[in-house]
């Protein structure tokens, strides 16, 4: 037995050892920022998460002993993400239905797919510029509507491409069975295909919502920011992400602290939505 065994020559051993060390230390380097970030957000943010934070308006800069919070930013983020979801989910899901159920591999459908991919690659700041050109300039003012529109353009390609993937997973036999029972395209798609793909569509919608909630660049010059409560959809609006940006750049420590508290809140929302999205599809996998 021992005759068959030849130890690796030292040069090979050294080669393997050096590569192992390099690769593993580089990979460790990739994980350090994540851990440092999470630690910083929790340790710097949680001490400032008081009840006031969720119920009060931001205190004017530099004022001490005044209750201060970002309730208006929470409302702003929720309202703008809701506008974005209201615009992008129906449009994205219908587009995906067209691609899988009607267009399939036609030239037009491939073109649509390519353009949606292009849209998903557009930098989020350019999406903000687009919303600025289409809503802020004509209406001559920053508005929650413009912010919501910008976020919907961010969400649209995510929803479309992910929904198409989940529709493609529906077995063709189910469509044929439905057709065999006399259902047309509309009924087959709405009652059979969408029902079967529902968890997948829900997951992609939640992931898109999580993405939109954390976006800052599309909001910074569309919804702008506001120290006050939301005054209608045509007025400027605060949002958690822009609040973090503005208050991080502020020279006042109180505002910096509020930015950290908002960061905990925002990361909490994003992580919660992501986990929910994963849970929805996991649930589905175990039932099948």
């Amino acid at each position: 037995m021992s005759d068959l065994y030849a130890p690796l020559p030292p040069s090979k051993k050294l080669f393997n050892f050096a590569l192992s060390v390099t690769t593993f230390s580089l990979s460790a380097l990739a994980l350090i920022p994540l851990l440092a970030m999470l630690w910083a957000i929790l340790s710097k943010g949680i001490p400032h998460l008081t009840w006031d934070v969720f119920t009060q308006l931001p205190a004017p800069a530099g004022m001490k002993d005044v209750p201060s919070g970002f309730a208006n930013a929470i409302i702003g983020t929720v309202v703008m993400v809701a506008i974005a979801a209201g615009l992008s989910l129906p449009l994205g899901i219908l587009t995906a239905i067209y691609l899988t159920e009607f267009g399939k591999n036609s030239t037009f459908a491939s073109g649509v797919r390519m353009l949606v991919t292009i849209l998903s690659a557009a930098p989020s700041i350019v999406v903000g510029v687009f919303a600025y050109a289409i809503i802020v300039l004509p209406l001559k003012g920053f508005s929650a509507l413009a912010g919501g529109f910008a976020l919907s353009v961010i969400m649209l390609p995510i929803v479309t491409l992910a929904t198409e993937e989940s529709l493609k997973l529906v077995p063709n036999a189910q469509r044929l069975a439905s057709a065999a029972l006399g259902a047309g395209y509309a009924r087959t798609t709405l009652r059979i295909v969408l029902a079967r793909a529902f968890p997948g569509i829900l997951t992609s919608s939640l992931l898109a919502i999580a993405r939109a909630a954390g976006e800052t660049a599309p909001l910074i010059f569309t919804a702008l920011f506001s120290q006050n409560w939301l005054e209608g959809l045509l007025g400027p609006s605060a949002s958690l992400s822009v609040l973090i940006f503005n208050y991080a750049n502020s020279p006042f420590v109180d505002q910096n602290n509020l930015a950290w508290a908002a960061a905990v809140m925002l990361v909490g929302i994003v992580v919660f939505t992501n986990l929910l999205a994963r849970w929805v599809t996991r649930n589905r996998r175990t039932t099948h």
Partner: peptide
């Protein structure tokens, strides 16, 4: 999963961390 989690953190929070910690 952990490495991909970095991509889920909103970029404004990465910036906040970069400015005050990094």
């Amino acid at each position: 999963f952990l490495v991909e989690l970095i991509a889920a953190i909103p970029s404004v929070i990465v910036g906040l961390w970069g400015r005050f910690i990094l």
